[in-house]
Write a protein that binds this DNA or RNA. Structure first.
Lengths: 217, 217
DNA sequence: TCGATGTATTTTGTATACATGCGCAAGGTA
DNA sequence: TACCTTGCGCATGTATACAAAATACATCGA
């Protein structure tokens, strides 16, 4: 097999989905605002067909709402939405933690510990954005270790929907310190393969996430 | 407010989504088989545009898989898929049970108990289909009592994807009796508002569902 | 001036036409 | 005969045209 020189011939649909998803997460398309179909298809330089298909996909993901004959809007999360999502996410990550302790290989756990070290390095340097990205990766990777694809998918979905709010909400330094402490506990439990303790830690972590985030909605 | 005389002007998209979803759940469209776009749009008497949008929605729901330039197929669940879905569903319903005990009103609990009575009546009469439908409703209603919309959505999604397999897998009489016993325990715990016990019961119930179902995949 | 009603304009929904890429089979070559 | 090549047909992907609905706006009357 030669080096991978394949042209990633992704369909326009897929490209539009990830592009618009990013626009929503980055806040370029503001929550609650109408999605101007004509404007966006012009900027993205695609026709209405793949664009509208993409909207359907994003609607199913929960990022946009299509109101029949009235256009689509970027879904705006209420406090109740965010609370319920964090409640479910906490419970899912508890399961992920427990399963990871039971099913992950030693190298996989070590890899996650290494990732954690890199996060700590970012924290010491106060490199917010790299930390944030590693953090996202930490949680997805932990879900992977559960060896449960449904769990991974659902966690990824909620993560994506909350991404923006969590980013906004984690600005305060003391919040950051708290999150770091949570992670220390999680990694310790993971090293010991103590599923119960890891599950509790993940659940608690997300419980505190609500406290950190709730005022920025 | 007068009686609701609004004309339900559902878009073709929505109609196609629910129609095709039913075709998949009912097994008319067989798992793993290619979806013949031309044939279906003819039978449904719609054009390709709303049909293809509907496919995107169903793909996001996990019922079909669109392979770029290669057509769509009805997603075929592997044993691993079903196991992971039941594992997550069990965990979600555990949460639903715990939250329901904490948050539901007395009348709501009573309504669920009544529903349970009707299920028992069906069981005594060996009315399989009505029982099955009431059972679906029982689980959705219990999720409602959690007052957590995200939980409801995710539970509904997994339910829909598993619907067909669960129906096939619940044919044996002894399986049915076991499921009924599980429900008795669940309702007892719910009456007592014993969240922990209800959570365990729901989780155990779905654990046994795997046993009932696993050979029919 | 305010409101109601009818009309114009914009926007969305659906159908269809056109483009592209995949799979398969016919034909050629070793 | 087995395997590779090549070209054609057809399914899929995308663009555009047309239809219907909703919104904005203007005109008329009280």
């Amino acid at each position: 097999m030669t080096a991978n020189i394949a042209i990633t011939n992704r369909s326009l649909h897929d490209q539009v989905v990830s592009r618009v998803r990013d626009l929503i997460i980055e806040g370029v398309l503001e929550p609650g605002s109408r999605i101007d179909e004509a404007r966006l298809i012009e900027e993205l330089e695609v026709s209405r067909t793949p664009f509208r298909e993409a909207l359907r996909t994003l609607a199913a993901e929960g990022l946009v709402i299509v109101r029949p004959s009235k256009g689509s809007i970027v879904r705006k999360l209420t406090r109740e939405d965010v609370f319920s999502m964090l409640e479910v996410l906490a419970h899912l990550e508890r399961l992920a933690g427990e399963l990871a302790c039971a099913r992950a290989g030693d190298e996989q756990i070590q890899a996650l510990v290494d990732l954690h070290q890199r996060m700590m390095e970012c924290y010491r340097q106060r490199d917010r954005l790299p930390y944030y990205k590693l953090n996202q990766e930490f949680h997805s990777r932990l879900a992977e270790l559960s060896k449960n694809t449904t769990l991974q998918d659902m966690q990824a979905n909620i993560q994506a929907r909350l991404k923006r709010i969590r980013y906004i909400g984690n600005q305060k330094p003391e919040s950051w310190a708290g999150a770091v402490a949570d992670h220390e506990e999680m990694v310790a439990a993971l090293k010991d393969r103590d599923g119960k303790r890891l599950g509790d830690a993940m659940s608690d972590h997300l419980g505190r996430t609500w406290e950190r985030v709730k005022d920025s909605i």
